[in-house]
């Protein structure tokens, strides 16, 4: 065979390289290029959905003008949000007890008992949240008053803008 006898000189004073070696290396490099061109998008494509995180599913959830919230008594408000997972959109209902002492500062807490997830309700006479499942009670600010629940009711972060109240997220414990 005569191949390999031709000598190729690469520029800039590099060592002499046989045609065969050059072709081999160029081929390997290009195969690597093809691999990268297809491999990198593949990884990005596969990893993509893992980037989605939980949360409210919306930036902010409007609850309405602040004037409609009764002062001094926690009141239950319900809001439907659309949560999109992949290409499927589901409607979920979120419920909050919204509480304000002065009509300016608001707090919102979940109506889900932190014990086993029953729905608590506000008993006006007792000034407490009552969970019918195991007779647990919570204070007005959501802390546990009696019964088995391990922690206070979950709180939500609120935002007042243009006299409108929005829920903007969960308060992380």
């Amino acid at each position: 065979m005569v191949h390999g006898e031709e000598q190729w000189t690469s520029g800039a004073g590099m060592a002499k390289m046989s045609r065969r070696t050059f072709l081999s290396r160029a081929t390997t490099t290009m195969v690597g290029g093809i691999g990268a061109l297809m491999g990198i998008p593949t990884v990005a494509y596969l990893v993509s959905p893992a980037k989605a995180r939980g949360g409210l599913g919306v930036d902010r959830l409007p609850l309405g003008p602040i004037s409609k919230f009764p002062v001094g008594e926690p009141t239950l408000f319900k809001a439907a949000i659309e949560r999109k997972t992949g290409w499927v959109t589901q409607t979920e209902e979120l419920a909050f007890y919204v509480f304000t002492e002065d009509g300016r500062n608001f707090s919102a807490m979940s109506n889900i008992c932190t014990h086993l997830g029953c729905r608590v309700r506000w008993i006006t006479d007792d000034e407490q949240f009552f969970c019918p499942c195991h007779s647990a009670t919570f204070n007005k600010n959501g802390t546990v008053a009696s019964g088995p629940p391990p922690r206070a009711l979950d709180q939500f972060e609120l935002l007042v803008e243009d006299e409108q109240l929005f829920v903007v997220g969960k308060v992380e414990a």
């Binding site: 065979m1 191949h3 065969r20 072709l23 160029a26 081929t27 290009m30 093809i34 061109l37």
Partner: peptide
């Protein structure tokens, strides 16, 4: 003739890479 690798493969891969870039 020529050895399949690397001479012919070089041509094949070069064309293949070009085709892939055109596709992208």
């Amino acid at each position: 003739g020529i050895p399949f690798f690397p001479d012919a493969v070089f041509k094949d891969v070069l064309v293949g890479l070009t085709v892939l870039i055109v596709l992208i």
